[in-house]
Amino acid sequence: MENEFLNKVEDNAAVPHNELQDLRDVWASWDEGTKQLFYQSYGDISYLLDIRVDKHLFRVIVQFWNSAYKCFTFGEVDLVPTIEEYTALLRCPRFQVRKTYARVFNSQTFAKKLMSISGMSEPWVAAQIQQKGDSKCIPWENLQDLVLTHPDERKRVDIFALSIYGLVIFPKALRHVDEVVIDLFDRLEKGVTPVPAILAETFRSLNTCWKTGVTALIWP
């Protein structure tokens, strides 16, 4: 079980670099007008594409994660990620702190939400949807094509932002954007803040790493 999890971690460490470079290339190709349109709707989350993660430092820090108290413990000092810190990191002016994101069940289908975000037809969307494990998703290569060729600039911006959320902030299946991310992104138009969801995912991921002993396994 541990070896299986380790292989998955190593895959996750290698493949996202390709996605990040794809996203960086798209951002670099945009003119200032398109970038301003992005900033107005989604804040400065594009800066996440340029963050360099020190894997060795991350492996060390995770060893100090206290899963019982949900904090990092360094001797007698406890440090915990906060909603305020995550809000500052995302830097999006449209977020409303009092309208927290929560997944709504029995609402629009995954396909309908994807149609609304992408502006594509139902047959096109249905042809792109894939099943990965227990959830549906759409491949990054299909979204990348839309970001590069969609005739509607607004849609190109929306799909690019969706890709950042699906590949950088909430990565799950490699090179795919998961249906849960589509649901969250669909709700952003209503001004909800995804910050608590992102913070909860941080806790979940750190707990998983700690319980699996992955830090000890991948330590060089």
Rank of each mutant, 00 (worst) to 15 (best):
M1F: 12
N3V: 11
F5Y: 12
K8Y: 15
K8D: 15
V9S: 02
E10Q: 14
N12Q: 13
N12M: 12
A13N: 07
A14L: 09
V15H: 04
P16F: 00
H17N: 11
H17P: 08
N18A: 04
N18G: 12
E19A: 05
E19Y: 04
Q21P: 12
D25M: 07
V26F: 01
V26C: 06
W27N: 11
A28R: 15
W30R: 13
E32A: 05
T34N: 04
L37M: 06
Y39P: 12
Q40C: 01
I45Q: 05
I45F: 06
I45K: 04
S46Y: 05
Y47D: 14
L48I: 11
L49G: 01
D50T: 10
K55D: 13
F58K: 03
V60P: 03
I61N: 02
I61E: 03
Q63R: 15
W65E: 10
N66D: 15
S67D: 14
K70C: 12
K70D: 09
F72A: 03
F74C: 04
E76W: 06
L79M: 03
V80H: 08
P81S: 00
T82G: 06
E84L: 08
E84R: 13
E84G: 02
Y86I: 07
T87S: 12
T87R: 09
T87F: 04
T87W: 07
A88T: 15
A88G: 07
L89M: 13
L89Q: 08
R91M: 07
C92M: 13
C92G: 09
P93N: 11
R94Q: 03
Q96N: 15
V97N: 11
V97Y: 09
V97M: 11
K99E: 03
T100F: 03
Y101H: 02
A102G: 11
A102T: 15
R103Q: 05
V104D: 11
Q108W: 10
Q108T: 14
F110Q: 02
F110L: 03
F110K: 01
K113G: 12
L114N: 01
M115H: 07
I117E: 03
I117D: 01
S118P: 09
G119W: 02
M120S: 13
S121H: 10
P123W: 05
P123L: 03
P123F: 04
W124R: 15
Q128T: 10
I129E: 08
Q130G: 06
Q130F: 07
G133R: 01
I138N: 01
W140A: 09
E141V: 14
E141K: 14
Q144F: 07
Q144R: 14
L146T: 04
V147Q: 00
L148Q: 00
T149Q: 04
D152S: 10
F160I: 08
S163N: 00
G166K: 04
G166I: 05
V168H: 02
F170Q: 02
P171W: 00
P171D: 00
A173G: 15
A173P: 15
R175N: 15
H176T: 02
D178I: 07
V180W: 00
V181Q: 00
I182T: 01
D183M: 05
L188G: 01
E189D: 11
E189Y: 11
G191T: 13
V192D: 02
P196G: 06
L199S: 08
E201N: 09
T202M: 14
T202L: 14
F203S: 02
R204Q: 09
N207V: 10
C209R: 00
W210N: 15
T212G: 11
T212K: 08
G213A: 03
P220A: 05
